[in-house]
C-alpha cells in the first residue's frame, strides 16, 4: 500500500515536471532571444529594455516593488472579499425569489460587460484621491458579476433526491440552505472567484492609472514611465505579473481544495 502510494506520488511529481518543462523552456528561450534582440539591434530602452536591465532594476528597487505589490494586493484582497460577499448575498436572494432574480441577473450581466475601470476617475472625485476606497470599489464591482453568476448557478444545482430527502425530514428552508444548498454551491462560488481574481488584479492596477494615492503598482508604473525610467517601469510590471500569478494560484488552490472535499 505505502509503496504504491509513494510511487504514485513520485509518478505525479514526474508528471508535473514533464508538464512544466516545455513552458519553462519556452520562457527561457524567449528571454534569451529578447536579450539578443535588444543587444544586437541596439533597441532604445523606452521601446524595450533588455531583460538584464529589468532584473538589475528589480534587484535595486526590490523592496519598493514588494511594497507596491502589497499595497495593490491589499486593494485586490479587500475589493475581492467585498465583491464576493455582496455577490453571494445577491445570489442567495435571487435563488429564493423570482422577482429578485429578474432584477439582479440582468444587472449582473450589465456589470459584466461594462468597462468598470472607466469608473475609477469618477469614484476618485466622489471619495477623494487620498483614499484607497475607489480602487477597492472598482475591484469589488469587477469581481461581483462572475461570482454572482456562478454562485447562483450552484445554488440552483440541488439534486431532486437531496431536496426530497430534506423534505422527508420536514426540514425548514434555513436547514435546507445550510445543509444542502449552500455546501453544494461552494465549488461554483470558488470557480467564480478564480475567474474573477485575475480581472480583479487587472482592475486594481489599472484603476491606479487614474491618479489618487501613489503607493501601488499602477501608480509606480506610470510615474517611472513619466520619468523615463523604463527598466524600472518594467520592474514594476514584473511585480504586477507576480501579484496576478500569486492571486490566481491562491484562488485555484482554494477551488481545488473545496472540490476535493466534495469528492468531485
Amino acid at each position: 500500500m505505502s509503496t504504491t502510494t509513494s510511487s504514485a506520488v513520485r509518478a505525479a511529481g514526474g508528471d508535473v515536471l514533464r508538464r512544466a518543462l516545455p513552458p519553462v523552456l519556452l520562457g527561457v528561450v524567449g528571454l534569451a532571444a529578447w536579450q539578443a534582440l535588444v543587444v544586437a539591434a541596439d533597441v532604445p530602452p523606452f521601446l524595450l529594455p533588455s531583460p538584464t536591465a529589468i532584473v538589475e532594476q528589480l534587484v535595486e528597487v526590490g523592496p519598493l516593488v514588494l511594497e507596491a505589490s502589497l499595497a495593490t494586493g491589499a486593494n485586490v484582497l479587500v475589493g475581492t472579499l467585498l465583491g464576493a460577499v455582496v455577490a453571494v448575498l445577491a445570489a442567495l436572494l435571487a435563488a429564493r425569489s423570482r422577482p429578485v432574480d429578474a432584477v439582479l441577473s440582468p444587472t449582473a450581466a450589465a456589470i459584466a460587460v461594462l468597462p468598470i475601470v472607466a469608473l475609477a476617475p469618477v469614484l476618485n472625485t466622489m471619495f477623494g484621491t487620498t483614499t484607497t476606497t475607489p480602487r477597492r470599489l472598482v475591484v469589488a464591482a469587477v469581481v461581483f458579476a462572475p461570482v454572482f453568476v456562478t454562485t447562483l448557478r450552484g445554488l440552483r444545482q440541488v439534486l431532486p433526491v437531496h431536496r426530497e430527502l430534506l423534505r422527508s425530514y420536514a426540514a425548514t428552508p434555513a436547514q435546507l440552505a445550510r445543509t444542502v444548498t449552500i455546501p453544494g454551491a461552494l465549488p461554483y462560488l470558488f470557480t467564480g472567484l478564480r475567474i474573477a481574481s485575475s480581472t480583479g488584479v487587472i482592475a486594481a492596477v489599472v484603476a491606479e492609472y487614474f491618479g489618487g494615492l501613489q503607493d501601488g503598482l499602477g501608480s509606480r508604473i506610470t510615474s517611472a514611465a513619466a520619468n523615463s525610467a523604463y527598466p524600472r517601469a518594467w520592474a514594476f510590471v514584473v511585480g504586477a505579473i507576480l501579484l496576478g500569478l500569486a492571486v490566481y494560484l491562491l484562488t485555484l488552490a482554494a477551488e481545488r481544495l473545496v472540490a476535493r472535499r466534495q469528492g468531485l
Binding site: 439534486l159 433526491v161 437531496h162 426530497e164 430527502l165 430534506l166 425530514y169 426540514a171 436547514q175 445543509t179 444542502v180 455546501p183 453544494g184 461552494l186 472535499r261 466534495q262 469528492g263 468531485l264
Partner: peptide, 23 residues
C-alpha cells in the same frame, strides 16, 4: 431512495447523523 442520495460534502458519519442533527 432508489439512489443513495448521500451528501457528497459530508463524511459517511455526517450523512448518517444528518436527520438526527436536523431534529
Amino acid at each position: 431512495f432508489q439512489q443513495a442520495g448521500l451528501l457528497p460534502w459530508r463524511s459517511v458519519r455526517g450523512n448518517v447523523e444528518l436527520p438526527l442533527e436536523l431534529h
